[in-house]
Design a protein around this nucleic acid. Sequence first.
DNA 1: GAAATAGTGTCTATTAGACAATATCGT
DNA 2: ACGATATTGTCTAATAGACACTATTTC
Lengths: 245, 245
Amino acid sequence: MESDLSAFPRPHVAVDIALLTVRPTQDRLELVTLVQDRTEEPLGHSIPGRFIRERHTVAQTVDELLQLEVGISLGRRRPHPLRVYDDPDRDTRAWGLSIATWLALPWRAVAHATGTWRPISPSGTPRGVKLLFDHDRILREAVSELRDRYETSPDPERLLPGLFTLLDLRHLHEAVLGERVRKDTFNRRMREQLEPTGHETTSLSPPGPPHSAHASRRGRPAQLYRHPRRTTSHDGDLWRLPREQ
Amino acid sequence: MESDLSAFPRPHVAVDIALLTVRPTQDRLELVTLVQDRTEEPLGHSIPGRFIRERHTVAQTVDELLQLEVGISLGRRRPHPLRVYDDPDRDTRAWGLSIATWLALPWRAVAHATGTWRPISPSGTPRGVKLLFDHDRILREAVSELRDRYETSPDPERLLPGLFTLLDLRHLHEAVLGERVRKDTFNRRMREQLEPTGHETTSLSPPGPPHSAHASRRGRPAQLYRHPRRTTSHDGDLWRLPREQ
DNA sequence: GAAATAGTGTCTATTAGACAATATCGT
DNA sequence: ACGATATTGTCTAATAGACACTATTTC
């Protein structure tokens, strides 16, 4: 590193965010992403993005972006880093980098966002639109990461409210993965990563904080679970090579 | 995005790289990293870094960095993205971002690099020095990623030459992981991800390209293996939830 | 009672991990 | 022959996946 920093050219730096959520439909849940219509050239569809402000962090930029251009609040959550897009020709106007991020939020927190929520196809891109720049690719990678995380953890993105049943959780997984999963294996794997509350679903609200509507009001009442303590690191020792004593 | 891009402030963007390799010692291999002495303020030890040039990519910048300030050649390899460090106060001279990357190269390609190769402690930081900025943390994360990759794959970073034995491979793993691993389980897991060549180690060189010195010239000759075709994606279906038909 | 859902039990094939035995070399 | 290493075989406990059965509610 040299001393006179002003001698170095500096790129424009944008932050793009793939925003994902799971939305209830008539009979099920579906994974959707937020697509916006650009008002500047080049016109078309894109995911939300914004140039980073002086001495702002990526997280701050995402925060501003969500507040000003999407109309939602980030809260205490942090966006997941995805990658840096550095093709010098990716923006025809000037030399710029894009820091791609992604974030999954519960539907109730983002239902009113500015833009159009579009269902995600099995391949990970939004159905029915072609996005500008490399945004289809960003979205594919974001969806891929989200799906990977849900293969092994109950609800890493905390899309469910504080109390939920295994059926709620399975519906969530099927929406994220875009496929049906086997009930018994699913339940067994997930149960050991969850904390039972001792309470069951009833017609009345259970004691404690209110929780969202559950999948069905028919059938036998189900155990209510909550998210595990963070210490239940149910990963990491998986597929490690056995060490010599 | 607005039209007049010149209105936006732009950060300095540096690329830092954690360079890792496995070096032979008298009786074993050890994981080492390259530490350099800074010639500018703040003085101290750091990993190689450089500001990105106009319309250059991260990979190009790494390439220049390695050629000009380390004296080695990147070849066709690509650095692994790590994360973006965006603390506005991380550099006292000006507002800047750091794009952290890491790369592991075979010892024979980097032995003569400019700087000091320092052994990596079990925790992932170089033994005996304290690095400037957040470089200790970058290194910890790089080593963690490297170790994760070697838990499940024979040689994802291609640190071994074209032909090698399972003993060579195990020595490599033990250097990377910093722990002994069980021979039989190791061999079984790795063998199914490798291609046997049909040739064995002998006093003479085997047919084909020359390969580096093997671990030992004692004992029964061992099968020589080569890296698998990339299609042996021996991952990805691990710990997936079973789908409903 | 029928339908729907929750929860439990069990069988089997597979596999990890450990241990042991055998094979083949250099010295 | 001996030491060192490679390679193969086997035993056992654990577990995934599949399937079936029972339990409890709403309608």
